[in-house]
Nucleic acid binder design. Sequence first.
DNA 1: GCGGATCTTGACAACGTTGTCACCAGGTCG
DNA 2: CGACCTGGTGACAACGTTGTCAAGATCCGC
Lengths: 386, 386
Amino acid sequence: MIRTVAETRRGRPTMNDVAAEAGVALKTVSRVVNEEPGVNSATAERVRRAIEHLGYRRNDGARVLRRGRTASIGLVIEDVADPFYSGLSRAVEDVALHNGSLVFTGSSGEDPLRERELVLAFCARRVDGLVIVPAGSDHGYLAPELTAGIQAVFVDRPAGAGLNVDTVICDNVGGARSGVAHLIAHGHRRIGFLGDDATIFTAKERLRGYRQALTAASIPYDPSLVAMGTPDQPRVTADITRLLTLDDPPTALFTGNGQTTVTTLRALTTLDPRRATKATTPRDTNTTPGTRDSSTTSGTRGTNTAGGTRDASAAPNLAIVGFDDFELADLLTPAITVVAQDPINLGRTAAELLFRRLTGSAGPAERIQLPTRIIPRGSGELPPPR
Amino acid sequence: MIRTVAETRRGRPTMNDVAAEAGVALKTVSRVVNEEPGVNSATAERVRRAIEHLGYRRNDGARVLRRGRTASIGLVIEDVADPFYSGLSRAVEDVALHNGSLVFTGSSGEDPLRERELVLAFCARRVDGLVIVPAGSDHGYLAPELTAGIQAVFVDRPAGAGLNVDTVICDNVGGARSGVAHLIAHGHRRIGFLGDDATIFTAKERLRGYRQALTAASIPYDPSLVAMGTPDQPRVTADITRLLTLDDPPTALFTGNGQTTVTTLRALTTLDPRRATKATTPRDTNTTPGTRDSSTTSGTRGTNTAGGTRDASAAPNLAIVGFDDFELADLLTPAITVVAQDPINLGRTAAELLFRRLTGSAGPAERIQLPTRIIPRGSGELPPPR
DNA sequence: GCGGATCTTGACAACGTTGTCACCAGGTCG
DNA sequence: CGACCTGGTGACAACGTTGTCAAGATCCGC
């Protein structure tokens, strides 16, 4: 009995090992593995048995080197753990699967440097294409990649100036405008705006929508009603306290993204016992899924709620409309009215566009805008106190 | 002036092109790119300029082929869009980044076949290691990979029989036991159990914990109080209706995972107007983030709540304890008491174990069990009606 | 001025696959 | 019977890197 070298070798068997085992040439194994026609069925069977016996698996790395396409794409988002992006992520993954592609996923955490590192690492792996939720605004580093033929689609936010790439975003201005108009239609004229950090594209756009709605209703814009920043609990609580202790406090709030909405609700519960579910059982955040980062989202304990001379709990029936839908919005009391965008649609549309490009679709860069829609649930229909 | 071929060529420049441009040998470029010592600084500078000029990036695929390690790992989970798994996913990603590795992510969707496909695709890409939340129970297909030297760590659920791999799970039995004991301590003796599909490991374990708690309190086990299955709205609503119309209905519910808890709350809101936030504004699920799949999670509209002869809305103050914490549990009315496990810790622990193996740690397969803890918030402390 | 050490550089094979081309045996057709 | 095709197979180069080894230049001490 002949024992081949392969059987005793360390590590992965190669096509060569299989060929030796089956007594054929390397190329014949290649043909069998790739199901190319023109192999005698008896030979093929012998090869397949050898493959089975040795536990051979094709090395796709080497294959890629030879053929060019890697059948993989890179996905850079802000944070996989954020429900908005994880929905988007899943949609991209599904489209990729459908196109026979694998997905490298990476979270930038709003850090332009990390975004860049991730993108370049993906490019070094020679992914066929990229889906990017940009953190930074300078994407000059992408230019060489693009001219080298890598396809990229930006989602949720556009690319920095000077980069001509496909983009899929939602109608931030229109969505915010309609959400604020909804509050105005229910009688509100003093409407607070709580937004994400002002450097973020979507935050700026939504503020723009807010102002448009005010203008359309001939309500003057009052900067003191606007607060923007990262949606961590202390900051939001402080901002809300400031808003509610104004001489002429808002009767309604428009919150600029999902995280901010949730943080706002938690702040209001802390500030206003009448709204509070159970004042003695503070939230324990350490193990909560879906938070951005355990260090940025601190608990409600010990937040600096003491503040102005007026009582911040003077607004028990503050109306609220939030941008972004979120799980359980319907089960809160009152249920939360939202301007919903569709992360799954966003991801799917972007990925489909990418694969269309990869299969040869030419033409100038597209900019697709997806609609939003209002889902009234109660919190946005509360009238102002008279 | 000499124009090199590289400048006019299509596609990516290679080290060869850079070498030609800089007037050095291929190997010298390799040294510069990899920051190996022993290159004259003037030469190195010339090479760097050529790299810059051509927009060269190292092809990591070829590099991998030569060196063996791919500096990438594969992550297979149930669904990236599920907040539990997306938290886990983010933790794995962070550890990978910290170890200079990229992550291929894939969702199995509880389909053993897809799990297998994903794992094998990752192996074909020669990932260094795998973190797997198994969907199936037969992992024979992994054996050749393991003997070939691929490291694997199973998370959240153990591997199928006969596979000796590292495993990180949480204390499902103990967690469920303590959650149910908590209800018993508050006076309940008729406690319903709503669990995930009975084929899923964690679901079985938690049912075991439920039974242990009953036994410890000398309460007989009543199978009619147990309902298991995929946590889609119609099924859960039907099950709850059945439980509440029993001759001797439960005064408390223990829900076996996050999705089931949420679905249960939604069902109760539908069934019991006294619990309902606003009966006229049904939830609109189409755009909600974090749902398992838009087809499995249907809205509450049109669910078959009509059923038994008794009134299913007869339990306004049903106590509830849920397995898994979830965002907003603290803001519901009443706030929801949960047995929290820590998906981030789960992911981090698994990934760290994987990288310890990859850096040479030998020894027998470990089985790490992480603790859970109860977070009382109100719903689990409601007494039974007298 | 010579043997040897040091520094810098390059030629070449190898990683595991696929594309190209050529070869051989056997059959078909004119 | 020779030209031609066809089905099956294999030899070989190439993909873009890195590891090994060796060679040439320069410098040291004696």
